[in-house]
């Protein structure tokens, strides 16, 4: 198994957000995580990436047989985990190319490999840029600064393509994209797909799943995965919203909170 999340609880500033997540991801699989706003999808993604603001209070996460929670965010990345942010961070003064060059070489160093020279790096970058159809001038621009929503998302996919992770977690990379941009993003993700890699897609929309077909769809609601199924589940959710999904028997009393349907 590539990733095994067992009874994961996490809080921030004393509020428990994740209340016992269980999730198993095998190499080659695509998992979609859906769920209403505020249900904890980004929290799960960020906890997996190692954000320190969240406190894991219970449970464990095993990645490639290692205790993931003990690794620093950078080591998780070096071990092959990639998070495409829901809200990519703007970093004025740091160019995209500088970020990527440092990232590629830090990861190589970690694995005891030699740094890429300027030519090798540029060859790699140019090849991957084609996937996301970004212009070369984009490399010199500061990371995400002044980017449109779509550019930011494409940039995440571009970074993913360059870093070539084993487990890619995409947090709403499809949100706010027009259909052309969506296809570019989906294409980027599909290029990464292989039998020894896995992808977790956090999304609100079935639309993306037309292009990246998931093996499993999970519904995250109020900090728990309350339903899992195949790709049909996404269609059903699209049609009916989330209201019909009753929390499992051990969940808080039904009707306690009106679940907002998002669309």
């Amino acid at each position: 198994m590539l990733l095994e999340v067992k009874n994961l609880h996490a809080s921030i500033e004393g509020n428990e957000i994740l209340k016992g997540i269980n999730l198993n991801v095998n190499p080659g699989e695509v998992h979609a995580i859906m769920g209403p706003n505020g249900s904890g999808k980004s929290t799960l993604a960020q906890v997996l990436a190692g954000r320190e603001e969240y406190e894991v209070t219970e449970g464990e996460v095993i990645y490639e047989g290692k205790n993931l929670l003990e690794l620093s965010p950078e080591d998780r990345a070096r071990e092959g985990i990639f998070l495409a942010f829901q809200y990519p961070v703007e970093i004025p003064g740091v160019s995209n190319v500088n970020l990527l060059k440092t990232a590629v070489n830090e990861i190589r160093k970690y694995h005891g490999e030699e740094e890429l020279d300027a030519f090798e790096f540029l060859t790699l970058i140019k090849e991957k840029m084609k996937i996301v159809e970004l212009d070369e001038s984009f490399l010199k621009r500061a990371v995400n600064e002044g980017f449109s929503g779509g550019e930011k998302k494409r940039n995440e996919i571009f970074q993913m393509a360059v870093l070539d992770p084993k487990l890619a977690i995409l947090d709403e990379t499809d949100s706010g994209l027009d259909i052309d941009a969506l296809k570019i993003v989906a294409n980027g993700v599909n290029k990464l797909k292989s039998k020894d890699k896995a992808i977790i897609l956090v999304t609100h929309y079935q639309r993306l799943l037309n292009y990246i077909v998931p093996d499993f769809v999970h519904v995250l609601y109020n900090g728990r995965i309350v339903k899992s199924g195949g790709k049909e589940l996404a269609l059903e959710l699209e049609e009916k919203g989330y209201d019909w999904i009753k929390a499992p028997s051990n969940s808080p009393k039904g009707g306690e909170k009106k679940v907002v349907t998002s669309n």
Partner: peptide, 18 residues
Amino acid sequence: AKFYLKTRGIGEEAARSI
């Protein structure tokens, strides 16, 4: 920003320096 850089495999020192 520092966390973002780290999730790209960039270590504490390098992230700070960047």
